[in-house]
Every structure is written in structure tokens, then in C-alpha cells.
Amino acid sequence: MNKLLNILSRVLDIKIEDINDNIGPDNTEGWDSFNGLLLATELEKEFKVKFTMEDIVSIKNVGDIKTILKKRGLKI
């Protein structure tokens, strides 16, 4: 969990304690299209997984990220 929170905090430039499942592009200034993609590449690197195109376009908030990572058998 810590790994995920750290990455979200750094990429989106928000405090760890402000992160919840509903955080997404609509309510977070730092979450623009570039940072969304950057987030995906950082997660792939950190968790050693590969996302599909569908995975990436389906991400609408932090909860979706958790779902995708869990689908790949990762404990977060």
C-alpha cells in the first residue's frame, strides 16, 4: 500500500493523507492526461506488471488502480 501511496503522492503532487479511492482526474489538479500516463508507467515499473490499453483507459480513480493491481494478484 505504501508503495502505491508514495507513487500517487509524487506524481499527482498531493499529500499521502489526502489520498482516497475517489481521487481521480476530475477532482485532482495534478492528474492531467500526461500525469495519468506517467502514473501508469511508474506503477508498471514499481510493481513489475504490464497493463493493457484497456486497463489504462479504464482508470477513472484510485479505486480503479487498486482493482487492476488486485486483478493481477498483487497485494496492495
Binding site: 492526461s33 500526461f34 500516463l37 506517467l38 508507467t41 515499473k45 490499453m53 483507459v57
Partner: peptide, 14 residues
């Protein structure tokens, strides 16, 4: 990589 199609990230930020 696939990111080339998503945001024209032909070169991955990594």
C-alpha cells in the same frame, strides 16, 4: 510502446 498511442509518448518517460 502502447503509450505512443495513448499520449504520443513515443519515448517512454521511464
Amino acid at each position: 510502446t502502447k503509450y505512443a498511442e495513448l499520449g504520443d509518448l513515443r519515448l517512454s518517460p521511464q
